[in-house]
Design a protein around this nucleic acid. Structure first.
Lengths: 165, 165
DNA sequence: CGCTTCTTGCTGCAGTGCAACATAAAAAGG
DNA sequence: CCTTTTTATGTTGCACTGCAGCAAGAAGCG
């Protein structure tokens, strides 16, 4: 696997096959919900699609904006409830440092640590493999008698695409 | 340095000499502001003292509550401005995942990575040495062509004091 | 069909955070 | 010492975030 391919896997390149990556993610969401006997209702699917269409984190009210059509817009609580559902099922992550949400494009195995790399220039969010970081964190935590739980950390910086400009 | 001492350095024990740790922190704040030609005004000092008195992260409006007296309470913006000042000078950290603020009890050297260990039971926040984690993160980021900036990560879990109960 | 459970719609509100402008206080300069 | 400039605080107001609580509708099940 070349470097370029690897980068693509982490930060979605601007020119990637977006239609395909979206449909893959939706299919994955359907499969996961079916396996868990959860219902991916039209609203929930619509919220997920909205996030997938952006590839960048969106605030709740930004999602509402983008979901609006002639028939009006969903109420905030409606979107929040859909987001709760999607998060519970590992299909969406919340970016704490931005009060925003992003669709998950990977199959996370249970409790693996996730490292979000957030570009402060373009706002893109990449997910980095965090095994080594997880090890270091675990060791560091244990030294403090601490039992970590949340496998999710956020790092702000500049992404490869923005730096090359 | 024994383990117990080390733990104390990370999670303040419930029975530690709080008066002393507070006055030390205030003295440090004064020194740092003096060195930077910044003014630790009464309001800013009061906000810092409020945070120090808690040792746990406080929301902005919780700070306002605790600062209230017969003469009324500070306006939100007043507290936010003081918090901005204290953060700019490295005396206070913002806990993103909680929309809360905590007084910093260490002398952070410039750009060292800070790991916050947040106890989900008692809400206490400890700071863990993050050198190993920082190394792993740097390596992981570089693999993605990413230049990290914010040296601050938050881990939720159970602290040693709560687990022992 | 009737019951339970899940989902959505609706109203309302509490917490967060700051913009914009006015005023006071402190530092700098002559 | 007084003026000018900078810095800090006060005041009003508002936009955004997130959810509680209740009512109504839809889906699954015996």
């Amino acid at each position: 696997m070349g470097v370029k391919t690897m980068l693509r896997a982490i930060f979605p390149a601007p020119d990637h096959d977006h239609k395909r990556c979206t449909s893959t993610a939706i299919a994955h969401a359907e499969a996961r919900c079916a396996a868990r006997a959860q219902r991916l209702t039209p609203i929930r699917r619509h919220v997920l699609e909205t996030l997938l269409a952006s590839h960048n984190p969106l605030g709740a009210y930004e999602i509402i904006e983008r979901m609006a059509d002639k028939k009006g817009r969903p109420a905030p609580i409606t979107v929040y409830r859909a987001l709760d559902f999607l998060r519970d099922n590992g299909l969406v992550h919340r970016i704490e440092s931005r009060n925003a949400f992003v669709a998950c494009v990977h199959n996370h195995s249970g409790d693996a640590l996730i490292v979000f790399l957030i570009c402060e220039r373009c706002g893109a969010v990449g997910e980095s493999p965090g095994d080594a970081v997880a090890q270091a964190l675990k060791a560091s935590s244990r030294a403090a008698g601490f039992s970590p739980k949340s496998p999710l950390i956020e790092i702000v910086g500049i992404c490869s695409h923005c730096r090359q400009r």
